[in-house]
Amino acid sequence: MTGRSGLVRVRLLRGVGVATAVYGVAVSVVPDLLARPSGLVDEEGRVASATRISLRPLAWRDAASGLALALAPEGPALRTAAYVRIAADLGDAVLLGMTLPDRNRRRKAVAVSVGWGALSVLGLLGGGVSRPVGVGLRRGRR
């Protein structure tokens, strides 16, 4: 990587992307994975059909943005994918933090959302990009 894109911690961003994509696909198939920890259940602990329906697009957004982060070419495309992921995570923190039915669950949702966003921010800050094997090494030296 050269220029400004050299500052990006590509492995970290790719890892965030893969994890987000996998989680997004899982929640789109089984929305209870997000609904239950968020407290979006009735008195008997069941997740309403309407809740499942409304969580699937959110999960698909995570799958798509995670996939973009995992596969975008290094440089402006990868940075843009990271910005989209950060915006989604911060949006989740604000919206879930204001609207989930239980204060403790709101705090946890904010912490998780901000945490994932922070990982992408760290990836953009750079400073820890490892060079490809052999780059910068002189022959005969290790």
Rank of each mutant, 00 (worst) to 15 (best):
M1P: 09
L7V: 04
R11H: 14
R11L: 13
L13P: 00
L13Y: 00
R14V: 00
G15T: 02
G15E: 03
G15D: 03
V16R: 00
A19S: 15
A21P: 11
A21N: 09
A26T: 02
V27W: 13
V30C: 09
V30H: 08
D32S: 15
L34A: 15
A35S: 09
R36I: 12
P37F: 04
P37H: 07
P37V: 04
S38R: 10
S38W: 13
V41N: 12
D42M: 08
E43I: 02
E44T: 13
G45L: 08
G45N: 10
G45C: 09
A48Y: 09
R52C: 10
I53G: 08
S54A: 15
L55K: 04
R56D: 09
R56F: 09
L58S: 05
L58W: 10
W60K: 06
W60F: 12
R61L: 11
D62I: 00
A63I: 04
A64G: 04
A64I: 02
S65A: 12
L67I: 02
L69E: 03
A70R: 05
L71D: 08
L71W: 10
A72K: 01
A72S: 11
P76W: 13
L78P: 03
R79E: 13
R79T: 07
T80E: 03
A81Y: 02
A82W: 00
A82P: 01
A82G: 02
V84D: 00
I86T: 09
A87K: 08
A87V: 05
A87Y: 06
A88G: 11
V94R: 02
L95H: 06
M98Q: 14
T99H: 15
L100F: 07
R103Q: 12
R105K: 15
R106F: 06
R106C: 11
K108D: 09
V110D: 07
V110N: 08
V110G: 08
A111Y: 08
V112C: 00
S113Q: 06
S113L: 03
V114P: 00
V114S: 01
G115F: 02
W116T: 05
W116C: 06
L119N: 10
L119I: 03
L119M: 15
L119R: 07
S120L: 01
S120A: 14
S120E: 00
S120T: 01
V121F: 04
L122T: 04
G123V: 03
G123L: 04
G123E: 05
G123S: 10
L125K: 10
L125P: 07
G126Y: 08
G126W: 06
G128V: 00
S130C: 10
V133A: 15
V135N: 10
G136P: 05
G136V: 01
L137P: 07
R138Y: 11
R138K: 12
R138F: 06
G140Y: 05
R142S: 14
